[in-house]
């Protein structure tokens, strides 16, 4: 069993109006040092694949569904979890 953490964020070249609004709000709160906020998505996948390449599967699902490469970047962390 694998626990996979997937992070999807808007690409650097894409303006993130949500992040901008949050950053502005933090400035108003007095946190002027917070120069930039980017908002993204976090997903946890539990994958049970014995014979297949887990990383290959993760890359495929990220590209086919979990992210849209036109506007988003993704990264992931794979952890092997010991079965109880």
């Amino acid at each position: 069993m694998y626990k996979v953490k997937v992070f999807v964020t808007l690409r650097e070249s894409v303006l993130d109006p949500q992040g901008k609004a949050v950053q502005q709000s933090l400035t108003n709160l007095g946190y002027e040092g917070v120069e930039d906020v980017r908002i993204g998505k976090y997903m946890e996948l539990t994958i049970n694949e014995k014979n297949q390449d887990v990383e290959k599967t993760v890359k495929e699902v990220c590209e086919k569904l979990l992210s849209n490469p036109v506007i988003e970047d993704y990264r992931y962390e794979i952890e092997e979890s010991v079965q109880q």
Binding site: L10, V14, P17, Q18, N68, V70, I71
Partner: peptide, 17 residues
């Protein structure tokens, strides 16, 4: 149609959210 690749590009949230 954008997601399927039949048309190019993507949609972002409206500028004013």
């Amino acid at each position: 149609l954008l997601e399927s690749g039949l048309l190019p590009g993507a949609m972002l949230r409206n500028k004013n959210l």
